[in-house]
Design a protein around this nucleic acid. Sequence first.
RNA 1: GGAGGGAUGGCGGAGCGGUCAAUCGCACCAGACUGUAAAUUUGGCGCCUUCGGGCUACGCAGGUUCAAAUCCUGCUCCCUCCA
Length: 418
Amino acid sequence: MDDAHSHKSSRRRRKKVLAPIVVQPPAKIDYPGFSFDILYRDPKSRARLGRLTTPHGAIETPNYIFCGTKAAIKNLSPQAMREAKADIILANTYHLMIQPGAELIEKMGGLHEFMQWNGPMMTDSGGFQIFSMGHGSVADEIKGRNRKKERSLIKIDEEGAAFKSYWEGNTLRLTPEVSIDIQRRMGADLIYQFDECTAFHVDRSYTEMALRRSHRWGNRSLAEFERGHTGRQALYGIVSGGVYEDLRAESCAWTKDSPFFGTAIGDCLGGSVEQFYEIVSWCMPQIHPDRPVHLLGIGTVRDVFSCVRLGIDTFDCVSPTRIARHGWALTKGGEGRINLRNARYKEDKEPLDPSLDIPASRDFSRGYIHHLLKADELLGSQLVSQHNVAQMNRLMREVRQALRGGTLDALESEWLPE
RNA sequence: GGAGGGAUGGCGGAGCGGUCAAUCGCACCAGACUGUAAAUUUGGCGCCUUCGGGCUACGCAGGUUCAAAUCCUGCUCCCUCCA
C-alpha cells in the first residue's frame, strides 16, 4: 500500500506537461461524391435552401439528423424511419467503439450495411463525451445539478482524452487519429474532427486553451483523414470558443481556412436559449459561406425556426426521440407538445395528428397510446417516437417550402402560436 | 373443538410507548429532458390552512398512561397447525 502510494507519487512528480503536438494539415482535400449546392437564399435572413449530396444520396436542407447512438434509433427500425420520412441519421463514435467496436462494424460491412440504413449518415467524433462523461448531462452541467453520476473522464491532455468505459470499466483512449480511424472504419458519409466540448462553468482561459487544442486536434484530424482517405467520406470541422465572442471568431476563421467539407457549431453554447442564439448569430457571418453548416446537438421546434434564419443547414438532437420515450408527442401549434401519460388522455379518441400520413399519428387513438404507455407496452413509446420523427420531418419540409415562398414568419406562428 | 399468528394509508409491507400523518416498494398525479451511460429522472401523494399550524387517522369498542399504531380487555374477521 505504502509502496504503491509512493510509486504513484513519484510517477506524478515525473509527469511532464506535453508540448503542443503540431501537425501541418493538408492544404486541400478533395471530397468526390460530395457536394453542397445552395439553391435559394432568403432575402430577409441568412436562411438558405440547399442540397447536400453524399455517396448515399442527397438531402434537402435545412434538414434534421436523428440520433441513433448505438447504431439504432431507439424504438425505430430503418423502415419506420423511412415511413416517418427521415432523410439522414447519425451514430456515435464513443458508444460504438465500446460496443461492438469499430473493427466489428467494419467486418460487418460498415455502418450502413450493419444497421441496414442506406441513406446518408453521420458520426460524431466522440468529443462531446469528453464533456458529458466529465459532467453528466448537458442540462445538469448548465443548471449546476449534481446527479452523483460517476465521472468517467480520466484525463484530457494534448494527445487526446482517456475515459473509463461504462461497459466494461476499462480505460479507453480517444485521440484525433483514433477517432478518425474509427469513423473511417464505420464508414458514415459525414464525419467529424475530434474536439473538446467545454463545460459551462469553465473560465475564459480554459476555453481559450481548449480551443487552441481543439484546433490542433482538428489539424491532426485533417491529416489523418487525408492519410487514409477512402474517397467516400467528408469531414466537418467544429467551431468552438464557448461563450466568448472573440474566441468564436478565432475558431470560425480557423475552420474557414481549413480544408473541411462542412462546418459545425459546437462547444458550450451558454446557459440559456437566448445566449445560444446569440453565439450562433456571432458565428454565422464568419463561417465559410459555401459549406454546409451543422448545429451540434440542437434542437427544438423553436430552435429550428431561430437557427434556420441564422443560416443553419442541419440540426441533430436526441430530444424528439427521448421525449417520445417519456410520453411527449410533438404537436403543430397548441402547446407544442402533449404528455400522453397524463390522465386527461385516458378516454381521448382523437389520433395524435391525422394530417401526418403514418398509422402512429393518424390511426391510433390518444387513449390507446395513453394505455400502452401506462402499461409499459413498448409499442406505446414506439408509436410516439415515430410520430415525433415524422412531426420534425414535416416541420423541416414546411420550413423549406415556406422559405421558398417567403412565408417563414407565418409558418412559425402556426407552429409556435402566442 | 384445541393451540398459535395476524388485521397499518389505493395495494404490498415496515414500525411495536413519545422524535409517527406513519420507512420503503408499487400504483396514482404532475414536472424535467437540446453533439443519448436516459423505456431515465425529479417532485407530489389523509383533510384543511392566513403555510405558523390545525383536524381526523393504524379492524371495532373500551381501558392503562402525562403520552398508544405500539401495552391490557372484549368483540369482529382472516390465516396456520392439531383433533
